[in-house]
Each structure stands twice: as C-alpha cells, then as structure tokens.
Design a protein around this nucleic acid. Structure first.
Lengths: 140, 140
DNA sequence: GTTAAACTTAACGTAAACGTCAGAACATTT
DNA sequence: AAATGTTCTGACGTTTACGTTAAGTTTAAC
C-alpha cells in the first residue's frame, strides 16, 4: 500500500514469537534479556516489537554465550554497538572495556588452537589403540 | 635419602591446598569435581592426594571451562585422555564424541575469528567518534 | 459478539557450579 | 599433652539463566 516503502528490511519489526523462531530461543528468554537490559523492544500498547537493533544485539548475545561469556559481560560490551546515544564519558569506558575484551578473545583463540591440536593428537592415539585392539577401521 | 629417586616430578602428589594454589581454585571446587567424577585423587587415610593424572585433568577442565563447556561435557571428553583402563566399546564411544567435539571447537574458532574482526571494526568506529567529539587521542 | 490465538505480568521452580558454615578427625608443633 | 593447623564430611545457601504454570489482557477470526 505504501508507495514509498522505506527500506522494509531495516525498519522491520518482529513479534516475540517471530524472534523466538529467528533465534531458536523461548519467549521467556527474550523477556528475561529485556529485564536484564540486553534488549530494548519498543511497545505497541502492551506488546513487544523487536527492531533491527534488537536483532543485532541478539546475534551478539548468542555469539557471546557460545564463547562462554556471562550475560552481564555481554551487556557491558553491547553498548559498544549502540554508542550513538551515550555520553562521551561512558563511551570511553565501554571503549576501554572493548579493548580488554578483544585481548582476552584473542588469547582464547590462541588457546583454542592449542586445545584443538592436543585433541587431534589424543584422538590419533585413541584411534591407534582401537586399531591395535582389532577394531574394524571402517567403524571409525 | 632415596638414591634411586624415580622421576620425582611424575610421581609427585599434591595435598588439596597445594592443588588450590596451583590452579587458583577453592578446596570446595576440587572436592566438587571429585564428586562429579572429573578428578580421582588417591587417599592417604582420609586425606586426598592429587596425582599427575589429576593435574592433567585439571588443566583440561580449566581449559574446557574457558571455552564455555559444561562440567558434564568436559567429563565425557576426559576419558579420552585416560583410555588405557576402559573397555573397547566405551573407548569407541568416547572417540566418536571426541570427533564431534573437535568439529564444534573448530567451528567455534572460526566464529571467534569473525567476532574478533567485528569487534575491531566496532572499536575503530567508536574511537573515530571519540576523536570527532574532541577527545584527547592519548587518552585512548 | 464471542471464541480462540497470541501476548502480558507475576510468581514460584530448577539445574549447574560452586560458597559457606558446622562439627569432628587427624597431624604437627611446642 | 595441649594448642594449632589441615583436612574431612555433611548440609544448607547463592548466583546465573532460564523453565513452568497461573491468571489476566488484547488482537484476530469467525
């Protein structure tokens, strides 16, 4: 109906169930994240509507969780992606935190690489033993 | 006193407080891990003594935790590093699990690389804004 | 216009991973 | 032998991150 459909993708908002399907989480989880100030859905009356900003934040939240960060640790960093509407002083703090987080993530990446290598070695040893014990190679 | 000191480093056992200092965890944590069958300290009377095997396991536990794995997930994989004393059938299972875990760790490493890159970009944007707002560059 | 579907708040429950005592046993120092 | 230090086994408490009803409200369908 709108002749001027202004960037439908950018402006699109999602209901809570749509968000659930998008990110494979429960409604409770989304409400919980809002209560912890990780998401800021707008309201249409009483109902929540999730914006592009929320979708971006959710992606980061899911990522952070996979890497073993707590929700609180994630929340602190999220401000880095919405810094437009904050005071200079707070942006500076978030920036500093971002630098630290970057360091620890690079460290984690290194360690992960080593752990992967170790695991490979261990798997080979394990495989050798199984073969020696007469296991059928095709089973592995 | 022992003329033949048989590899003191390998055979060395640690009291619980020594282990606490070694790995920067509480005694409760070590006992908890034992109750969950992640560690198997030997006993001298009532007291626990942690062996080289326990030290190795602890290292893997700490690593696993940093990567965001649960204690149960870690426990299952730990058997991979002590497979000598298990039945072939169980070793096969652990081996299969190890392969899967390896996959997800490599996946995680990839994602971590991307996340690091994104974070760097975002930090740069943030820095630009701060400079534009007249922040002293040396503060950053 | 009412019934059903989707959504809401509020409150209690739960699993994981420990923290924090209490009370007793054992070991060591003095 | 008495005091001190270390360790032990419960057992209850706590935080994080949600799950799970319950009971009411709003929106969409018929």
């Amino acid at each position: 109906m709108n002749v001027i459909s202004t960037k439908s993708k950018e402006d699109k908002v999602n209901t809570i169930t749509e968000m659930c399907k998008l990110f494979q989480v429960s409604a409770r989880t989304l409400r919980f994240y809002e209560s912890k100030e990780l998401l800021f859905p707008i309201r249409k009356g009483q109902h929540r509507l999730f914006t592009k900003s929320d979708r971006g934040r959710m992606k980061l939240i899911m990522q952070g969780k996979r890497f073993g960060f707590s929700l609180e640790e994630i929340r602190q960093l999220l401000n880095l992606y919405n810094f437009g509407d904050h005071r200079t002083r707070q942006i500076k703090q978030t920036y500093q935190l971002g630098l630290k987080r970057l360091c620890s993530m690079e460290q984690q990446r290194k360690e992960l690489g080593i752990a992967i290598k170790d695991l490979k070695t261990q798997l080979q040893l394990c495989k050798d033993l199984l073969v020696k014990r007469g296991a059928d190679s095709k089973d592995l």
